[in-house]
Design a protein around this nucleic acid. Structure first.
Lengths: 200, 200
DNA sequence: CAATTAACCTAACGAGCGTTCGGCAGGGGG
DNA sequence: CCCCCTGCCGAACGCTCGTTAGGTTAATTG
C-alpha cells in the first residue's frame, strides 16, 4: 500500500484515448488493438485496467453524465428565478459538451452499444438530467416567465439544441466558446418564450 | 425486356430492412448475415443487389438526402416571405424525419462509416441542404423579419432542433405528428426571433 | 427449342475481432 | 533475502466478419 500516485494514471489515459477513438470511428469500429496501439501497449495489457471493451464505454458515459448532473445541479441552484436557472443549465451543458466533446459525443451516440445492466444505469442517469431541466421549465411556466406548449417536448428541443454543439464546434473556430454559449442561451430563451408575455 | 415489375422489389426491401437494423444496432454492429436473415435469404444473395455492405449505407443516405433536398426546395418555393419559407422548411424536415425515422437516424449518425468517394458525395448533399436553410435565414434577416446573431450558427441550431425528433418520436405517442411539427415551427420562430422586432 | 439471364443457393476463404493464458520484470514490505 | 503484487508482454483461442467462387433453378428471349 501507500504508493505515490503516478502523474497521470494509465487508466485515465486509456479512457481519454478510447473516447477519442470512439468519437472518430464509433465504438464498434474501434478495436482493442486500436486502443492499445494509441496507448503504446499490448491489447492484453488493457485488461489489467478494465474487464472488457464495453466497460470502457460504460465508464466514459457514467463519468460524463455524473459530471453533467453535478454541474447542472450546482449551477441552477445559484440562480434566482427560472430564467436564470435555465440560462445556467444551458451554459454548463454547452460548456461541458464543448470542452469535453470527445466523451460528450460518445455518450450521446453510443448508447445502443451498451448491454443491459450498464445500459439501464446510463439511461437512468440521463433521465435524471432531463428531469432537472423539466423542473426548471415547469417552474418557469408556473411563474409566468416562460411560455411552452409542452414541457417534455421543450426539454427535448433544448437538449437537442445544446447537444448539437459537439457536432460542429472546434476550439479554433470563428467564434469563441462564450459567444456560442450566449447565442444558445438566447435561442433557449426564444424556444421558451422568455420575455414574450403569457400570450405569444 | 418488358418484365412486369414485382410488387415490391427485393432491392427496396433490402434497403428498408437494412435501415431498420442499422438504426437499432448501428452500421458496424449489423452484419450481412443479420440483413440476410431478416430478408430470408443467404448472405451471398445480397451481393446480387449491392456490391457490398457499405454501398447499402451509401444508397440509404443518398436517397434520403435527395428526398430531403427535393421536399425542402419545393416547400419553400411556395411560401410568400422568409418566415413562411422557414416554416415550410421545418415542416418538411420534421415530417420526413418522423415518417422515415429509420433512414433519417442512420443518415444523421453513420457518416463516419462511409469511406471517401461515397462520404464526400453525402457531405456535399448535406451541405447543399444546409445552404438552403441559410439562404432562408439571410433573406429573413435582410427583410427584417428575423433576428439572429449569426446565420450559420442559427442554421445549426435549427437543424439540431428538427433532427432531434427522430430520437424520441413514436407514431403512437402522446401527441400527433402535426402537433409536434407545429411546436417545432414555433420553436424555430423563437430561435430566429420572428415577431420580436429588430431589437430583442 | 436453345440460349441467356436474373436470382438465389452452398461452401468456403482470409482477416480481424474480443478475450484469455502463462510468464516476466521490478520494487516495496515482512 | 524472499515474496508477492502490479503492470505489462507474447502468443494463442474460438469466433464472426465481409466477401467470393461456383453451381442450380426458373423464367425470358430470339
Amino acid at each position: 500500500m501507500l504508493m505515490e500516485e503516478p502523474q497521470v494514471g494509465t487508466r485515465e489515459r486509456l479512457l481519454e484515448l478510447s473516447a477519442q477513438l470512439f468519437r472518430e470511428r464509433g465504438f464498434h469500429a474501434t478495436s482493442m488493438r486500436d486502443i492499445a496501439r494509441a496507448a503504446h501497449m499490448q491489447p492484453a495489457s488493457i485488461y489489467h485496467h478494465f474487464p472488457g471493451k464495453e466497460s470502457i464505454l460504460h465508464e466514459l458515459m457514467r463519468g460524463f453524465l455524473m459530471e453533467l448532473l453535478h454541474s447542472a445541479a450546482n449551477a441552477s441552484d445559484q440562480a434566482a428565478d427560472a430564467t436564470g436557472r435555465l440560462a445556467a443549465f444551458m451554459r454548463t451543458h454547452i460548456r461541458l459538451h464543448a470542452t469535453r466533446a470527445m466523451v460528450a459525443l460518445v455518450t450521446d451516440s453510443e448508447l445502443r452499444a451498451l448491454k443491459d445492466p450498464a445500459r439501464r444505469e446510463v439511461v437512468m442517469l440521463r433521465d435524471r438530467y432531463e428531469q432537472l431541466l423539466q423542473d426548471i421549465l415547469r417552474q418557469g411556466v408556473q411563474e409566468g416567465l416562460m411560455y411552452v406548449p409542452d414541457v417534455k417536448i421543450a426539454s427535448y428541443q433544448l437538449l437537442a439544441l445544446g447537444t448539437g454543439v459537439v457536432f460542429w464546434w472546434r476550439p479554433d473556430g470563428r467564434l469563441s466558446l462564450e459567444e456560442i454559449v450566449e447565442q444558445h442561451v438566447g435561442a433557449a430563451f426564444g424556444i421558451c418564450g422568455v420575455g414574450r408575455g403569457k400570450r405569444g
